[in-house]
């Protein structure tokens, strides 16, 4: 079956994590329903601070929670109007993702009594980036640091969700926050009148932090989008881990995860 959207997801362990013997604390997962009815990419970045002892699990739970919730919510999507999808996206889905993530943490902690205390969610602290493509719209969510960029057919690079001015340095909003659903930022794009982006990239902050400026990072995203056309997605899929390892070694030192959604 020919699909409209091609997906690539790659995650590499950070060069500084290799030096310190720490695991890759990022997670990435995607899902594609039959006939492009529902396509999801989710990237999570578990916090690196010492208090977040199980953030690698927290990141895995985050991407699983996002895909589970979106599959469940939109299994009968034809029943929803666009305005209903928008409202669900802005109000109900962040809460449902948080609830699903907390249930996964609860379940894990049941088997680990040492973790089963009032601080348990903090141990699993993680960010979350999600992009959902439905036949009638695209929805983007962002909790915490990281980047979602799109490239149009005209080669324009945009950020559907602007940077969060509250976050600077190593600080991020998180699934382990007090009311984390309130910190989700959402962008709803109907595609009935507008041409959808040609290319969407989701990445943990280790990627953009490897470049000296936002302009350099945007150029990177534009170049990858171009390579998808000029060199083909199989070539990009093969090269991507090397690019990310190089970016970590010579740049941020952090784990890097990249999810690509490319319209044929």
């Amino acid at each position: 079956m020919v699909r409209n959207w091609q997906l690539i997801s790659t995650s590499v362990i950070g060069a500084s994590h290799l030096l310190k013997g720490k695991p890759n604390q990022d997670a990435i997962r995607h899902y594609q329903g039959a006939g492009d009815s529902l396509t999801v990419m989710a990237v999570a970045d578990g916090h690196g601070g010492e208090k977040y002892t199980h953030s690698d699990f927290g990141a895995k739970f985050a991407v699983k929670a996002a895909i589970t919730v979106l599959k469940e919510t939109f299994k009968n999507q034809e029943d929803f109007s666009l305005s209903q999808i928008k409202r669900l996206s802005e109000e109900d889905i962040p809460k449902a993702i948080v609830r699903s993530w907390q249930e996964k943490v609860d379940e894990y902690c049941q088997k680990q009594p040492m973790l089963n205390n009032d601080n348990k969610y903090r141990y699993f602290g993680s960010t979350l980036l999600v992009t959902l493509i439905l036949p009638r719209c695209i929805v983007y969510w962002q909790l915490g640091d990281g980047d979602i960029l799109t490239v149009s057919d005209n080669h324009n690079v945009t950020r559907p969700i602007p940077p969060d001015s509250r976050l600077l340095g190593n600080e991020t909003t998180s699934l382990c926050g007090k009311k984390p659903w309130l910190d989700f930022r959402c962008c709803f794009q109907p595609i009935t009148d507008n041409q959808p982006p040609r290319f969407i990239l989701l990445s943990s902050d280790g990627y953009s932090n490897a470049y000296s400026s936002n302009a350099d990072f945007q150029q990177t995203v534009l170049d990858i989008a171009e390579f998808m056309t000029t060199e083909g997605q199989a070539w990009v899929r093969e090269q991507l881990p090397d690019w990310l390892e190089e970016a970590s070694k010579q740049g941020s030192g952090d784990d890097i995860s990249v999810g690509i959604m490319f319209r044929q």
Binding site: S16, G49, K51, R122, D145, R166, G169, E171
Partner: peptide, 16 residues
């Protein structure tokens, strides 16, 4: 100098 991210709820600053 350690690029370790922290949740914003740590109120005393983002560097331990």
């Amino acid at each position: 100098s350690a690029p370790a991210s922290q949740a914003k709820l740590e109120t005393a600053g983002n560097v331990p």
